[in-house]
Computed example of a mutant assay.
Amino acid sequence: MLVGMRGGFVYIMSNRKHGTLYVGVTADIVRRAYEHRIGCVEGFTRRYGLKRLIWFERHDEIMPAIQREKNIKNWPRAWKVRLVEAMNPDWEDLYPTLF
């Protein structure tokens, strides 16, 4: 169960397998993934319908999570796809696993 954990999370959202990718960072993965799912915040993820949480990584501190997000954002797409598929080869929505 991830609810109530401290620190930070780096995560990747998508709209479908091998679809558009979005890399983000948050202190509250449950809340942030929910916001993406319901599209309550205007921007890239809402515009492209990125509602599927396909990868995440927990960090004990928020600053390393922020740095990791910046690094991953600069990676080629193929590296991001490999990262996702190492954890989630079918690109299933991981949101239900957060509870």
Results as ranks from 00 to 15, higher is better:
V84K: 09
H36N: 05
D60P: 00
Y22V: 02
A27Y: 04
K51F: 10
D28V: 02
K80T: 04
P64Y: 06
K17C: 10
Q67W: 12
I29K: 01
T26K: 03
K17L: 08
D90K: 11
I54P: 03
A65G: 01
K70S: 09
I66M: 10
H59R: 06
W55L: 07
P76L: 08
G43E: 13
I38F: 01
D90N: 13
A65T: 05
T26W: 03
E85A: 06
R77H: 11
E42Q: 11
K17I: 06
W75F: 15
A33P: 00
Y95K: 04
R47F: 05
M1S: 07
P96H: 03
C40R: 10
K51E: 15
Q67Y: 13
V25Q: 07
W75Y: 12
R82Q: 15
T45A: 14
D93V: 14
P96G: 09
I54S: 01
A78V: 07
L94D: 07
V3E: 07
E61G: 01
I38A: 03
D60M: 09
I54D: 00
T20P: 01
S14P: 06
G43W: 03
R82V: 10
V41D: 00
R47S: 11
A65V: 03
M5G: 07
V41F: 00
V30M: 02
F9Y: 15
E92M: 12
P76K: 13
L53W: 05
E42G: 08
A78K: 14
L50C: 04
Y11H: 05
F99V: 04
L21K: 03
N15S: 13
V10E: 09
A65F: 01
N71W: 15
F44Y: 14
P96C: 09
I72D: 02
R6S: 14
L50N: 04
T20K: 13
I54W: 02
D60V: 09
K70I: 01
M63L: 14
L98K: 07
G19W: 06
K51A: 14
E42V: 05
I62M: 15
M5N: 11
R37K: 15
N88F: 10
Y34N: 10
A27R: 12
R52K: 14
I72P: 01
I72G: 00
E35M: 11
I38K: 10
V25K: 05
A86M: 12
K73C: 05
V81D: 09
K51V: 13
L94W: 08
K73A: 12
Y34T: 07
V23H: 01
I38R: 11
N15K: 08
W79R: 14
R31H: 10
H18A: 04
F99C: 00
G24F: 06
Q67A: 12
